[in-house]
Amino acid sequence: MSVLVVVECADGEVKKSSLEVASYGAQVAAQLGTTATAIAVGEANEANLVKLGEQGITKVLYDAEPRLKDFVNNAYTKLIATAAEQEQAKVIVLANSNIGAAVGSRLSVRLKASLATNVVELPKTDGGQFVVKRGAFSGKAFSDVVLSGDRKIIAVKKNSTEAQHDAGKTAEVASFSAQLSDADFADAPKQVVMQDQAGGVLLPEAERVVSGGRGMKGPENWGLIEDLAKALGAATACSKPVSDVDWRPHHEHVGQTGITVSPNLYIACGISGAIQHLAGVNSSKVIVVINKDPEAPFFKAADYGIVGDVFDVLPKLTAAVKALN
């Protein structure tokens, strides 16, 4: 019995969310008195896989099949299921990403496992039960869920746990083959199109986010948001009304029916703070609200606030960040 961690790689690098997952998996293994093995998916680089030892991983399985570079649901499911059987994994940990959650749900059926997604803390394993805390009601609440199956699959929410770094520790990389056939790649994507991200920071993984609402008055004013985001190394986001009128693309929409984020810093500019928007951001560690209306409900959910005109305040903040650096 062991803990199997699914590590997503892109362009040779291990994704930040997967470093968090690796660290989470190693801590679960320690709780259960066993070791954590990783299975790498995507385009991996061996030197970076070795470094997963820093997160507490002892062994990394890697299948160099070139068609595994892009996400293929059936192939990834078979790969991970085969690794889970080989390692006799009782617990499988993955990122709550569009890859992790998609594979996790198929795996849970194939391996007859209990599945919890959107998990935000390490499990409680005392008292013979295995209990995880997960986000529910689109960020408005949490639930403690008992995973009663013999096998458990946990998808960990991004930015909700911190990756440990035990410098210098290494993991052993072992080649691995799930004997995948052409049929396993039948649902491979025909084409993958990546968008240009403002400043290269992906919103779901971002540690800092600068977000704009209707108070920005129009898409032509987004340069102010982008300037501050760039200075801070932050991703840009928006409220639902803004994406509804196509000022910004849908994938930037944060809220109950968009994406929920949990960065260290969320700066809301000209967003009033409707309950649906707050649901998407209230697990952020620090929330800053800039709004000219002192009665905006968002101030009640904020740590810091500026009552003022965003067009006046944003350039001052950008200048202050640049001065600091």
């Binding site: 849970s108 496992a113 209990s114 599945l115 919890a116 209990v131 805390k133 529910a136 960020g139 408005k140 609440a141 949490f142 639930s143 403690d144 869920v145 008992v146 995973l147 009663s148 199956g149 209230n282 697990s283 929330i287 609200v289 101030f299 009640k300 959910a301 904020a302 740590d303 810091y304 606030g305 500026i306 009552v307 003022g308 005109d309 006046d312 305040v313 001052k316 903040l317 200048a319 202050a320 001065a323």
Partner: peptide
């Protein structure tokens, strides 16, 4: 079912907002 909800909880409340003067945004 293979999972059971044991308990729900609401997110912790914020301590209250610290306001900064717009003239002194830096």
């Amino acid at each position: 079912a293979r999972t059971q909800v044991q308990e729900y909880a609401l997110p912790p409340k914020k301590q209250g907002v610290k306001l900064i003067d717009a003239e002194n945004a830096g």
